[in-house]
């Protein structure tokens, strides 16, 4: 009976290892290209939304606003859980586009996925977390009012940007290291 149990545990262990090697939490390789194609317009649009107040007029829609607490006192009832507000949807759309495409770029499989790539990915993720929260701390310390609000809006994607830059830099660098024969 004990031997049988041990066998089960052993087989489960092997399956777990195989599962880890398969990395089912990453997107297929083709998603990286889709990600880049979407990310470039998202960066341009994101810049325009943040610094040039870009708003497409055809995106004026009524949307659901949860826990409304307006800075400008525009909403009549601030105690309600939700309300319907008239809003331009450009910001939201660009934000979602940016996040989704950046995630595609960041978390797609390499063509030749192996344990060294794993290590680079993990290291880059830790790096990105440290750096983005360091930036966040600086923003909390030195930015106030609207500047703070804007910096927090940008900071939601810092972690992804730092990860993409660091990861791709290391991969690029190791790709062009010469085979010293």
């Amino acid at each position: 009976m004990l031997v049988f149990m041990e066998c089960i545990i052993y087989i489960c262990g092997i399956n777990l290892i195989i599962d880890i090697m398969k990395t089912n939490y990453l997107f297929p390789n083709s998603f990286r290209m889709i990600g880049w194609v979407l990310l470039i317009p998202a960066i341009v649009l994101g810049y325009m939304v943040l610094f040039e107040n870009l708003e497409f007029s055809f995106l004026n829609v009524k949307t659901l606003s949860l826990l409304p607490d307006s800075l400008f006192g525009a909403t009549s009832n601030t105690n309600s859980l939700w309300s319907v507000v008239e809003d331009n949807f450009t910001q939201e759309l660009v934000g979602i586009l940016f996040i989704v495409s950046a995630i595609f770029v960041a978390f797609s499989k390499e063509k030749n996925e192996d344990e060294y790539i794993y290590k680079i990915r993990l290291e880059s993720l830790v790096w990105a977390t440290y750096l983005s929260f360091a930036i966040q701390i600086l923003c909390i310390l030195f930015f106030y009012d609207f500047t703070f609000l804007k910096s927090m809006m940008i900071n939601t994607v810092t972690i992804l940007i730092v990860f993409i830059v660091r990861y791709n830099f290391i991969i690029y660098r190791s790709k062009f290291q010469k085979d010293e024969e």
Binding site: E110, N112, D114, E115, Y116, I117, K119, I171, S174, K175, Q177, D179
Partner: peptide, 17 residues
Amino acid sequence: GVSRQTINAIEANKYVP
């Protein structure tokens, strides 16, 4: 079945396989 970078990193003692 690994990438060339991996072999390179192992040879350079940058990565322990």
